[in-house]
Design a protein around this nucleic acid. Structure first.
Lengths: 200, 200
DNA sequence: CCTACCGATCGGTAGG
DNA sequence: CCTACCGATCGGTAGG
């Protein structure tokens, strides 16, 4: 009945190292994971890792960059498609969740550990993240006032949606930004409560 | 014109250590910060820190626990108050954002670094986090189908709200959970797109 | 709060 | 992929 937790499809040593690193970076953080931890998970000695990778940081960089790719692919697949902004936004959200679900651990590393990359890598990742945010911005901007709306309340997801939006605030909030905390709070409340309204 | 970045109100050595640790844990992560980093920021030597704190981990624990407190206070202040669920949810969201704005760095540490705490501390923090989530759940459950709805679109905040909800998914998603990725995606889309609907 | 230091462990390498 | 090891740095302590 218990699922065979698997490195099942780690065909190459490099793949085994990648998936071990994803697991460990996710569970203990990049800086909390040692090369010896990774080596043990793979079943080799620490020094032997360097036959397959250049450095710990390049390993993280590869995981993060490859991990963002499918998200950027979502936007590419929707670009120029004949859908209303509402339909596009729904498609982007639904597909995003599917990509998360296909590999939650990798995604966790992508969104939490990228910031420990140093400069050659960091700039590249920052650009990719910005491109993703810009894609959503464009869809929303395109559809400021069109389409239909229907809300089916589902408690669990709604609450996680609210908490996600709230807990993400420290990632983008700036005291020097254009909106006060009060304005932001009310705008978020509008956006999030809107989704909870029962259809009449 | 440049603001005086200040440890201005670090009256005691312990307060200076706390605020230095908050800055550094936020910028470089708990495991990426050394006691020597903190000591340097405070202006003393590493060993001298231990005249004021017990350990690196207890320092993080104190920051995280104290940092969650004002969030739990939001729920306490709303408990038993005569407001509709819609009003309560708005109040909770708005106040949450104000607490973030009052100390974004501390909040960043609270939501990102708590997971590096080990067991005596960790259980306590997990319980506090759960209590906060439960508070929102109760408000939402209380108001499943009542109140009015009005949406004022503000691009920036809406997009960050959407990305926050999405980027938070890996924190709670489980392949063994009650909903498929597709169900979750559509429920999130309902909730988030609802807030973008132009009022008619 | 400093001097002086500790055992442990880190990322990484040379040379097979 | 292993043996054997490196310089650096880690969290923390003893004794003032």
């Amino acid at each position: 009945m218990s699922k065979p937790i698997g490195k099942v499809k780690d065909a190459t040593p490099r793949e085994a190292i990648n998936s071990a690193a994803i697991r460990l970076f996710g569970a203990m953080g990049y800086n909390g994971t040692t090369m010896r931890d990774i080596a043990q998970e793979v079943g080799i000695l620490a020094g032997s890792l360097y036959a397959h990778i250049d450095s710990k940081e390049s390993l993280l960089a590869e995981i993060v960059q490859t991990g963002i790719e499918p998200y950027l692919a979502i936007l590419r697949s929707l670009d120029g498609v004949a859908l209303s902004p509402t339909e596009k936004l729904r498609a982007a959200i639904v597909t995003h969740v599917k990509v998360v679900a296909a590999n939650p651990e990798r995604t966790f590393v992508v969104f939490h550990e990228w910031r420990f990359l140093k400069e050659p890598y960091r700039a590249k990742v920052v650009k990719m993240r910005r491109r993703y945010g810009d894609g959503f911005t464009k869809i929303v901007a395109d559809g400021v006032a069109c389409g239909e709306f229907s809300s089916e309340l589902v408690l669990r997801v709604s609450v996680f949606g609210i908490l996600g939006a709230l807990n993400w605030i420290p990632e983008w909030f700036s005291p020097d930004g254009p909106s006060s905390a009060d304005e932001i709070g009310n705008q978020l409340a509008d956006a999030l409560i809107g989704g909870l309204r029962a259809p009449r």
